[in-house]
Structure formats: structure tokens, C-alpha cells
Write a protein that binds this DNA or RNA. Sequence first.
DNA 1: ACAAAAGTGTTCGTCTTACACCCATGC
DNA 2: GCATGGGTGTAAGACGAACACTTTTGT
Lengths: 293, 293
Amino acid sequence: MVDSGVHADLIAVLVAVTAGEPRVLTIDNGYALPAGPLQTGHKSLQAGLRAWVEQQTHHSLGYVEQLYTFADQKAGAGRSISISYLALSREQPAKHAGAIWRSWYDYFPWEDARRGVTELAEIRSRLDAWSSGSGERKARGNALFNASGQGWNEELILQRYEMLWEAGLVPEAVRGLSSPSHFGFGMEMTHDHRRILATAIARLRAKIKYRPVVFELLPNEFTLLELQHTMEALAGRSLHKPNFRRLIEQQDLVEETGRSSFGLAGRPAKLFRFRAVVRAERGFFGSKLPVVR
Amino acid sequence: MVDSGVHADLIAVLVAVTAGEPRVLTIDNGYALPAGPLQTGHKSLQAGLRAWVEQQTHHSLGYVEQLYTFADQKAGAGRSISISYLALSREQPAKHAGAIWRSWYDYFPWEDARRGVTELAEIRSRLDAWSSGSGERKARGNALFNASGQGWNEELILQRYEMLWEAGLVPEAVRGLSSPSHFGFGMEMTHDHRRILATAIARLRAKIKYRPVVFELLPNEFTLLELQHTMEALAGRSLHKPNFRRLIEQQDLVEETGRSSFGLAGRPAKLFRFRAVVRAERGFFGSKLPVVR
DNA sequence: ACAAAAGTGTTCGTCTTACACCCATGC
DNA sequence: GCATGGGTGTAAGACGAACACTTTTGT
């Protein structure tokens, strides 16, 4: 048992919301997240992360927060540690061929509960088949995937992904098996990158409810409906418009700019901006979203 | 700029609550947290952590959760990464000379708002002196340290510690200076261990409000007042007894065992246990604590 | 006029908070 | 009896969910 030099990788989940869709910056045609090894030249972990993302995607990171650190026990070769980060910014046109933005619902289609969720029916029936005989599995599947009315908790995305993995219903789970089923829900990613993405989404879905981080994803001026659509995109749920406005206005997060936005149809909407205090990291977001039934 | 093998340390904050005091397991006479390098023999990060804590303190970890990973840019020598963990268990008599349990309020005396908080007056006056001229500092100090009535938010312990550091009011901040002031609030620790401890406390104070983790700190059977005292110890605040009971009972977290506890005085209290479902990590703790005014 | 989106008022019920009070035991 | 802690009832008020409705633009 010897003290060993280990190899450390930095992995970024960079999120933006564009046209009502939550998007993730990927490389390798959507198969991987931007990542690279920590090097001696890097002044800090975050600095190293920024360097790699900029090199691989020509895109810069805005708000950054650490997600999780895990270790791979790679047989033979030395141990490898991965340190993953969540970053928020606004989408800029792709400047680099290898980098593309994808909707995160390409990877987790069942997590978009804004419109009728058709995929869930099939997932449930396949999970049921896999659970036959195990009361524990049945109960867990029900608690996680029961979208009917009250049941759906959008923050449990990681647990849902892990259950699908356990049941062999994601491509990654059957990778390397002698007879892979060639079936699985959602787009595949390399290594455990999709798991990291699920962790990032879970963190973000939880965080928007008590910290004002959405403004990192919005332009300086926006309408309340744009703000609502951004929140809906992240949470994967539809919100109640009148109550949403009041919730926001109550908390003094935003202020009117005086200008209005003339959209394609309907009455012009007042434009808002986030108040300076909010950007300075004070104030709290009123914990609950007014979910529409 | 070369890919470098790095050195990885594992650091544990092991917490227990004994006799109404939140306690931390330390080594080196309270000057350090149990820690050690990740080694090739360790099967996982957590396994390595458990090995080090058991070797250094002869104490085993219960519930474990990752806190944060950070990097030291040690001049000259290779880079060092620290991965810190929060662990919860019940205090067992010290089996090892080097290991002692200490109240975490030894390190953060100003964080115990259960009784009159005398220390705060001095902190505020010193912070005021340091802030003279800076409106930003004044505002921040007020927001963080204003214990009068509404102001106190026990989850901001890390921000408070960092502000004290910035103001040179903790021993660690003036360490290594040519003319250290030999003054500082709270007990000192080595490196940034006290900062890690603050992170752990902040995490735990936030978590008890929405996840049932307290039961890791309690015996199998307990009275509701014991449960309340444990929560109060962690939050550093007094809670409203009648409402606390109702809050707990509403959520079906606990069930009666049928037995009673005959204490030193007063009417015997019913003994409760946590329900099996809770241990199986389902259900939620009703987000807010009924703080007494 | 009508469609489409913005924005307001108000009710109803639940959850939070606070206060007041009664109960069971040891000394 | 009385001190000490255990335990319950209930009313005032804050807050959230839901519904109905008015306003302002473009075509």
C-alpha cells in the first residue's frame, strides 16, 4: 500500500437555455463532455477547467460550481480521479467544429414533463417487467417514475437514471456485455458522462428554487414570460403563469427597465432586469415553484 | 505544461451529537481533522477515507457524503488535491490516545445562538472598525452577523468565517505574517481544516431541513425532546417545542415504540424510533424549522 | 372583430406561528 | 404541594393554488 501519484481529470457541464430548450455543450458529436487532465501549468482547478473548455470548444465559462469528485479503479494502470463542474452561460454561435450544443432532453427524453410525456409509458412497462418478483423494485420504480399528478419530482433525475441503468435500459449499462441488447432510452455518452450530466441537472433543478442563478442564463433584459420559459426548460415542468409573476415580483429579484418587448403577437411585455443586489449574491429565491396541475 | 501525477488527500469531518453538544472527531489535540493520502490499495475514495479514520482514531464512519475538492498550489513540489467528506455517527468512548472529540463551537463560538450570544458584540465592533470606509463591507457584515431577530441565518457559517478571515480576525489568517496579532476568535486548526469544518457544518445545517439525516446521530430509541435537542445543537438555534413535535409527527418520520423514558424529573416521555421507510432514504423533511423568536 | 399574449383581483384552503393550557411524575 | 418536563387545543395570519377576468397589441 503505497502513496501513489494519481491522474486527475476535469470535466465540465456547460448549460445554456436557448429558445426554451436547455442545452449542453458537447464535443465528439454529442458523445462526450469537454474534459481534460489537470496540468502543472493550471493555477487552480477552475482555471484548468476553463482552459480545457476554451481549447476544445472556443467557448468561455461564466458561473462555475463544483459538482462531484469520483475515482475510477482502472485495472492495471494508475488510479484516475475525475472532478466535475457545472457551469452556466449564454449560448454563443459555435466557433469550433468539434463543439456542438444539444438539448439535454436528447439524453433524458423522459425528463421533459412540459408536454405529454409519452415515453414514460414504455419505460414503466419495461421497468415493471424487470421488477417482477421484487417488491422493492416495484415500489422504487413507482416512486421515481409515477408521473401521474403529485408523483413527479424533477429533482430525482439521477436516481431515475441509475434505476434505468440497473435495469439495463440505457445503452451504457449493456456496453461491453457479450450480447448487448442494442436498446436503451436516450442518447448514449462515453464513460459516465451521462451520469455526470444527470448530476448537473439535478443540482441545477434543486438550486433554482432557492438561489437566484437563472440570471446567468438570461440576457440583461428579458420579459417575465422569458424568465418563466427558462425556468420551465430547466425544471422540465409547466408553471402557472399568473402565480409565477407574483412569486417573482414578491421577492424583489427584478425591476422594470421601462422598455417593452414587441413580440410576434399579443400585447407588448414589460422588460425586466435583475436587481444589482441579486447579482451580488444576496437574497433568496422563494423555494417553491407554482407547478401547474 | 505537462500532465502531472498529483497527490490526493482524503479529509474527514466526523460529527456526533452528545449531551446536546455537536462534536467533531479530531487528532493532534484538536488541531487537525483525520486525514491521509489516497493509496493504491484503497478500493474507492470512501474506502480510503474509512481506512485512514480507523487507523488514526479507531473510530468507524457511519453515513458519509462528499463535501468538496480543492487544490493547493504548493510552491515547488507537486500539486496536492484534497477531497473532503462529511460523516455522521454516534460518539463512542475514545479508543485511541490521539483522537479526541470536541464541540464544534470551540472552533466557532459565535455560531451557537441557542443562548445569549455575547461574543457577537465584540465581533461586530471589530468588524466595524475594519469596515470603516467601505460600504460593501459594512453591508456584508451586517447581513452576516446581524443576530437581532430576523437577521441570523445559521447556514451562512462559511461566509461568516471567510469574512472574519478577510478581516484578519481568525488566527489562521495572520499565520506566517511578520507581526501576527496573536488574536483571533475561536480555536485554530492546521492548514484550512477549520474552513473545511465550516463547510461541513453549513452543509449539515442546510441538509437537516430537507432530508432525514439526523437519525444517524441518535440512538435507536429516543424521545422527541432528545430529537429536538439534537437539531438545536446542529442548527445552533432554539426551537419551539410544541410546534416541533407536530412538525415531526406530521411527516410520519417516527413511530412510537410503546416504551417510555423515565428521566430525572417530570413526566416520562414516550420513546420513538425512525420508521423503516425513512432509513431507506425516502420521504422528506419539511423544509423549515419552527424557530423560536 | 378576433386572436394572442400581458397582466390583475379575489377566493379558498392549507400550513406556520404563537399563545394558553392541561397532564404525569419525583421530591 | 410544587417543580419539572411532557403533551394538546386552537385561533390569527401568512402563503400558495386555482379560477375568472380585464388590458393591449397585431392582423
